[in-house]
C-alpha cells in the first residue's frame, strides 16, 4: 500500500485556507507520508511552489465569494488547467464540479471534475451522519463523516467512482482530481490522504518522464 514513501520528500501541498476545516487537512497531510509539507493558500502568491492543492470542507458560497475577492479563482483555474492535482472534500467537491445544483446563482466552480453535484444533497445538519464505507483500493471500510454533504448526482465516463453510499458516488477520482463528499480529515484515518499523495507522486513522475 505504502508506495509513496520514497518520492514524497519535498512535496508541498497547498491547502485552500479561505474558510473551513483547512487545518485538519494540513495535519493529515503532514502526518501521512514522510517529508510532505503543507502551506495555507489565501492569495495567488501562496500558490508559488505548490505541487497540489486541497480544497477543504466549509461553506462553498463563502469560499466562492472569497475566491473572487482574493483573485485566487483565476490563479487556481490556471494551475488546474496546467495539470495541478486537487483533493476536494465536501465543499471542495462543489468547487471542483462541472455543474452545481442548489448553489447560489453567483457561485463559481472550477469545472475540473466532470460531475453534477447537488449542494446540501442530504438535507440539513440533522440529516448529517457517519457510516463505514467500502473504498476501492482500501482493505478495511473507511469511517466516513458526512456533514451537510453534497450529493454527486452523476459523473462523466472519465471519472472513476471509488466508493458509493446508498447508491450514490461519495468518492470519485480522475488522474489529477480526487473528490470526496465526506470528511476524512475529521478522523484519524489517513488512508485517503495517502491515496491522493501517492496519485500525485505517480502523476508528477509521469509528467517528468
Amino acid at each position: 500500500m505504502n508506495v509513496g514513501n520514497r518520492n514524497t520528500a519535498g512535496l508541498t501541498i497547498g491547502v485552500l485556507a479561505l474558510q473551513g476545516a483547512f487545518s485538519s487537512h494540513q495535519r493529515a497531510f503532514e502526518r501521512v507520508r514522510e517529508g510532505v509539507r503543507t502551506r495555507q493558500v489565501r492569495l495567488p502568491r501562496d500558490l508559488d511552489g505548490v505541487d497540489a492543492l486541497a480544497m477543504p470542507g466549509g461553506e462553498s458560497s463563502t469560499m466562492s465569494q472569497l475566491l473572487g475577492s482574493s483573485r485566487l479563482f483565476d490563479a487556481i483555474a490556471t494551475r488546474i488547467a496546467s495539470g495541478m492535482p486537487v483533493f476536494g472534500t465536501c465543499a471542495g467537491v462543489i468547487l471542483l464540479a462541472k455543474s452545481v445544483l442548489d448553489g447560489r446563482d453567483d457561485q463559481r466552480s472550477f469545472a475540473a471534475l466532470n460531475a453534477t453535484v447537488r449542494r446540501n444533497g442530504y438535507g440539513r445538519q440533522i440529516d448529517s451522519f457517519e457510516a463505514d464505507i467500502v473504498v476501492a483500493g482500501l482493505h478495511a471500510p473507511f469511517p466516513a463523516v458526512f456533514i451537510r454533504a453534497p450529493i454527486i448526482e452523476s459523473v462523466g465516463t472519465d471519472v472513476e467512482v471509488l466508493a458509493t453510499h446508498g447508491g450514490v458516488p461519495v468518492a470519485v477520482a480522475t488522474d489529477r482530481i480526487v473528490g470526496i463528499t465526506f470528511h476524512p480529515e475529521l478522523t484519524d484515518d489517513l488512508r485517503l490522504h495517502g491515496l491522493f499523495v501517492d496519485r500525485i507522486v505517480g502523476s508528477l513522475a509521469t509528467n517528468r518522464r
Binding site: 474558510q19 473551513g20 470542507g57 457517519e130 451537510r148 446508498g166
Partner: peptide, 23 residues
C-alpha cells in the same frame, strides 16, 4: 440505511469544524 449514525458527537463537532475561519 443500515449502519448510518446521526447525531453522534463527531457529526455534531463536524459542523463546528466546517465553520472555522468564518463569520
Amino acid at each position: 440505511m443500515t449502519g448510518d449514525a446521526s447525531g453522534t458527537f463527531r457529526v455534531k463537532r463536524g459542523l463546528a469544524e466546517m465553520m472555522k475561519g468564518g463569520v
